[in-house]
Amino acid sequence: MTAAAKTVLSALEMGRTMARMAHEITEKNPDCSQIILAGIITRGVPLARRLADKIKTITGVDVPCGSLDITFYRDDIQSKGPDLNAGRTDISHDINGKTLILVDDVLFTGRSIRAAIDAVMDIGRPGRIQLAVLLDRGHRELPIRPDYIGKNIPTARGERVRVKLSETDGEDLATVVEGA
């Protein structure tokens, strides 16, 4: 049953993609001092960090960067059951009135982003929320549209998209695996 993994982003491509996204963020937000990056736990966190680093390289501005845990905001608790491994939401800066950019690795149904928006709203009232994702694989179930997309990848519903990051997985690589 082991299906072949198809590479959709190599390490090199991932680096270039992230750089482009950082540029797009700075273009869309001329005043970078108003930005706060919030990485959705788990892999959104290192991605947000990387974007912050690149924004700093481009603009010289230190963009605050935090982590957002959505465990308690999920809409599938009933079916999936409780998860005792919740991560820590750590956004130390005041988000009121700011542009908060949610960062995640893969955008799929949009349900995680819905949960993330709710989680953010319980922390404060940002001026606007934007969304940056490394991969958009389609199959949206909610009216959610990303502001920054690393790469659009057409997938079948049953396929699995796997993003590995050097911070969490030892290497940078995005693959698609056929569903079992």
Binding site: Y73, I77, L84, R88, T89, D122, I123, G124
Partner: peptide
Amino acid sequence: DEIMGLLNTAYKFKDVSEREIKKVPT
């Protein structure tokens, strides 16, 4: 293991209790 999980979770809920909005929709 479950108790360790409960501890981890309780720390997160402690954070919630220290927020302005001390509520999650869980």
